[in-house]
């Protein structure tokens, strides 16, 4: 028994890494993919201007422990999305 939202796309409910064409990399639980962008919930992000860790270090830490919520919801515009993959895929 659980909750199912088949209309939200295959990444619905999945924690994903969204690399962008800019400096930021986002991690969040995908809610849906829309014409405007990817809607993420419980969102953390890496910005090299704000972090001591490199992006790779940040991602490896997130793979092991998960992401801290900086934003409850964020939409990454489609034209800024460079790559989307499941966070779990980065596990060694």
């Amino acid at each position: 028994m659980g909750t199912f939202h088949d209309d939200k796309g295959e990444l619905h409910g999945i924690t994903v890494v969204v690399e962008t064409t800019g400096p930021r990399t986002y991690i969040g639980r995908c809610f849906e993919e829309t014409e405007q962008g990817i809607v993420l919930l419980d969102v953390d992000f890496h910005d090299p201007a704000e972090h001591d860790k490199t992006k790779d270090e940040y991602l490896q830490h997130a793979v092991k422990f998960g992401q801290w919520k900086k934003l409850a919801k964020f939409v990454v515009p489609n034209d800024e999305v460079a790559k989307v993959q499941r966070l779990a895929e980065l596990a060694p």
Binding site: D42, F65, G66, Q67, A88
Partner: peptide, 24 residues
């Protein structure tokens, strides 16, 4: 550990020794 649910944690004498976050 960042809060997530569901998640699984194994403790030994009160300390986390193994953690399975939601994304795993």
């Amino acid at each position: 550990f960042p809060p997530s649910s569901p998640c699984l944690a194994l403790f030994k004498d009160g300390e986390v020794v193994h953690f399975v976050p939601r994304h795993m």
